[in-house]
Nucleic acid binder design. Structure first.
Lengths: 143, 143, 143
DNA sequence: TCCGTTCTAGAATATTCGCTT
DNA sequence: GAAGCGAATATTCTAGAACGG
């Protein structure tokens, strides 16, 4: 792989690194045995969390922990897809984790721009207060 | 050096020294192993920051610090190009830093004139206010 | 290393990882040629930034950039010690950077607990507002 | 005046840990 | 018990500020 389509025109898009890396990861046929699109392209699977964490993650991120990867997924609004057989009594035949996001769709890389990183509720609340308080204009600008 | 090509067409171009030095630096085939144009000529790469800082910078500037060089780049509106393969735990094969500016293009030296040194945001804001406020003529003269 | 001496006396010390790593780094005789205490033990020196960044930093941190190391130092209130001879025209004989903090003293590891990480001015201001505003108790509890 | 160099800080994302639901 | 989240620190990129020429 040479250039990501997102970064090919010389100026950087405002899509956070996590999303472009995730996209690259899921697309890359080299790692399809560990992470790949679902059949209909609306979600992605991680097989064998252990190997995925130790072999794939450190190539793109500054860690090798599945938990940190999942934390980022949640920060960007991805949700785990719960499979029926996973919750049952019979042990699933495969270590298979699935995540989904409305704007993470195979063949629609431009939709990544609509995936927004969450911000803490406290910060959001305080920002709202500042917005509605005319007296805080000076503080906002300078602080 | 006698005449800069930038100043040969009858009107004096006031391109700051930093930009002409940067251009010379990137063009110079002698230092292409440490700093050179990207393949398509829309950005430039610095390889091996340490050697670049100690060997190349002092030939053009009054320092040998990568940090000061980067500060100048940002002052003139250059942005770092973030590569996806860097940023992992596993060290990339090459120490490669890339910067880009809309008007820093291989083969278009005359565009350097459009690269403007930034002034502080606060100063910029105040200047904008003065521009749109007719009553501030006296202030404008003094400030 | 089993137990940090900081946590052995019955109460848990919450010294951030950066400070304990920095302490270990400066103390370690193996790396004294790149980072070590000053003669009187009130500051520390980094020699040869380039080698320090590439060889030492990644053993303790998830990066190999001097700039990131310096950002952390400033976050914790360390200040660069400016040497007279470094600013002169004659090139200094050695690449020597020195940092200091009131509570970073050789032989007094327990003082690390007094080094506080800085927090943004805006956050600090907003927190102060919440503290002095009784009506925000519910928000504080829930958010 | 504007530019150059240095040191420090802002701001956004990234990583980790522990709690809540 | 697992999924999701809050909060603190960590890393990166850019900007502020002071000073000198």
């Amino acid at each position: 792989m040479q250039d990501s389509p997102l970064a090919m025109d010389g100026y950087s898009s405002n899509v956070p690194a996590f999303l472009t890396k995730l996209w690259t990861l899921v697309e890359d046929p080299e790692t399809n045995h560990l992470i790949c699109w679902s059949l209909n392209g609306t979600s992605f699977h991680v097989f064998d969390q252990g190997r995925f964490a130790k072999e794939v993650l450190p190539k793109y991120f500054k860690h090798n922990n599945m938990a940190s990867f999942v934390r980022q997924l949640n920060m960007y609004g991805f949700r785990k897809v719960v499979n029926i057989e996973q919750g049952g009594l019979v042990k699933p035949e495969r270590d298979d984790t699935e995540f989904q996001h409305l704007y993470f769709l195979q063949g629609h890389e431009h939709l990544l721009e609509h995936i927004k990183r969450k911000v803490g509720d406290l910060i959001q609340f305080l920002f709202g207060q500042l917005q509605s308080n005319p007296g805080s204009a000076g503080i906002k600008r300078k602080l």
